[in-house]
Amino acid sequence: MQRTLSPSGLRMAALLMFIAIYTAYSAGPFVWVAMMSLRTTTEISAAPYALPETLHFWKFASAWTESNYDTYFFNSVTIVFSAVAILTIVGGMAAHCFARYRFRFKGLIYLLIFSTIIFPPQVTVIGLFQIMVEYGLYNSRVGLVMVYVAIQMPVTIYILESFFARIPKDLFDAARIDGYSEWAIFWRISLPVALPAISTTIILNTILLWNEFLYAVVLITEDDKRTLPLGVLRFLGDQLEDVGMIATGLMIAIVPVVLIYVFFSERLIQGMTAGAVK
């Protein structure tokens, strides 16, 4: 007869155990908030961890209409969309420039831009606040868009540059012989060829900016200009006791990002892992 448990079997059992515990820790909170979002506060306080008996989908409608969520959602969508659009064009142009041309101080300029990745945000946020006031961009959605473009610029350039650099040079030489202008080369060759990398940066920037909080809280004061993370926090304050309703509010903030993830998970992972894997 075999021994009941070989050492490697034990190890395997331990690993599976670990995986089970970790999965509960990792997915549990999300499942819990999803369940609470469909239950009323009375039901929750009676049994915080029970399954929903009746699914109260009306709560989503009510959180949406009664709490200015439509405004916050719209603001988040416009701000993030504009910032990502500008980022893609401006970052793409710069990345193309770094990848294709040689010029003086190229290394230095690249290093300068790239080094902002490790800047702690507080070193910019106070000066930024003062400068935005002077530009007349304080408490304005346009101002927030510009700041978002600035903070995501280094990563965008980094990802796109490494992709552009891999496009075969022959393609560009051929285009030049065909009489393409430099701009046309960028617009009609670099961008289309690099579409996978570009969609990666778009998804990555969308998710990071969708969740951004610090700059929004410093630069926006007016309720009508707030983005969703600020809205969620305000919602928390307004609903003090109403745990069920807050859970619904949280779900509204989570769902769009999860949807993006479901549709673009491969691209997203590529984007987020770019740079970390060698």
Binding site: G91, M93, H96, G127, L128, I131, A150, I151, M153, W183
Partner: peptide, 18 residues
């Protein structure tokens, strides 16, 4: 042309605040 917009944004919203 390619570099100017990025540098402008960098100067205005990162370098200057720092």
């Amino acid at each position: 042309t390619f570099l100017f917009p990025a540098l402008l944004i960098y100067a205005a919203f990162t370098a200057l605040p720092v």
